[in-house]
């Protein structure tokens, strides 16, 4: 359990949020052109990183807005929080 600094509401308990998985997976521009391998990559394959991970979260019991987070998955420390559409912070 940890606290999350929602970019819209401020610091709240993690139980108010829903994790949305790995961030910055780009939806295919031409879905009809995709091979089965590319679909598998887009739909199922995940980096599942032990360490610094970029991910999406939703403040589901709050403002209900989506945002991005940088978190160290080995110890759950949050490194940065940024809004959807913003560029991920470097370092």
């Amino acid at each position: 359990m940890f606290l999350i600094n929602c970019p819209f509401c401020g610091e709240r308990e993690q139980s108010e949020f829903k994790a949305g998985g790995e961030a910055h997976i780009v939806r295919p521009k031409q879905p009809t052109e995709l091979s089965d391998d590319e679909w598998a990559e887009y739909l199922f394959m995940r980096k599942n990183i032990k360490g610094i991970q970029f991910e999406r979260w939703n403040h589901v019991h709050g403002c209900r807005k989506w945002f991005n987070m940088v978190r160290d998955t080995s110890n759950d420390q949050i490194k940065a929080v940024y809004k959807m559409g913003e560029k991920p912070p470097v370092k």
Partner: peptide, 9 residues
Amino acid sequence: DDYVSYSQK
């Protein structure tokens, strides 16, 4: 939990 974590808690 619904988030990826290797923290064993």
